[in-house]
Amino acid sequence: MRRFSRIWMKRTSLLVLATFIAFGFACGSQQVEPLDPNDSTLPQDTRRWIAAAEDGVVAARARRDAAKERLERARARQKRMLDEIDFGSKGAKVVDSMNARFERHQDYLEAQLDRAEALLALAEAKYELATAEQAIIHDIARYDVEEIKQKVEHARRQLQDVRNRLRQTRESLDRTTTRFWQVYAQYLKEGGDALRFWTGKGPSMSIARSAPKTGTDAKPQEQSVNPRSNVNPKDLPSNPF
């Protein structure tokens, strides 16, 4: 019995401790409740302020989605071009250079996406800050504004880092693009096929349908008065009248 009570107490203590810790975590990171920009009890200037911050988030999100789309398109294009274009034995350098260019382009687009993500994070942080400040001003809630401001500053710093990377990837992309065209020009000078870039390596387009063939496959038409239509007057029924 004694042993049991000891075990029971130990377990209870652990449970209580765990509960406290959980509450601590919950209370540590504050959650800013959004304010409704359509709430007529709030002054108009407040509502405008919050709505403007909201708009910033929406715009940032749209830009992020656009950046994603650009990246996907670029990837698809790269795959398509690599599948379709064949520069032959002389064009190995061209292919390598093209690959490099595509990869730098992707890096650049990924950096753009990161920037868009960073801008979105910043917009969200600013929205949170605007909401918290207005809530405090109008006695709706209490928040630790400093913590939120720190978040905003952190987001700004992140953005700055991303911008630097963007600039680097851009410069790299420009270099590889210029290099690619130089390689291509050299390829042409060395007698490379100027059609490869345009026709790719796919087969000629197949005949669309199995229509009766003309030309060599067709029965030779008889000579007729009308060579265009190959209509022989003898084939025409006579006028019944």
């Binding site: 229509a211 009766p212 063939k213 003309t214 030309g215 067709a218 029965k219 038409q221 265009r228 190959n230």
Partner: peptide, 12 residues
């Protein structure tokens, strides 16, 4: 559509 002269007519 199955006429033997289809192609010629198409060109016409």
């Amino acid at each position: 559509p199955q006429s033997k002269a289809y192609l010629d007519m198409l060109l016409n």
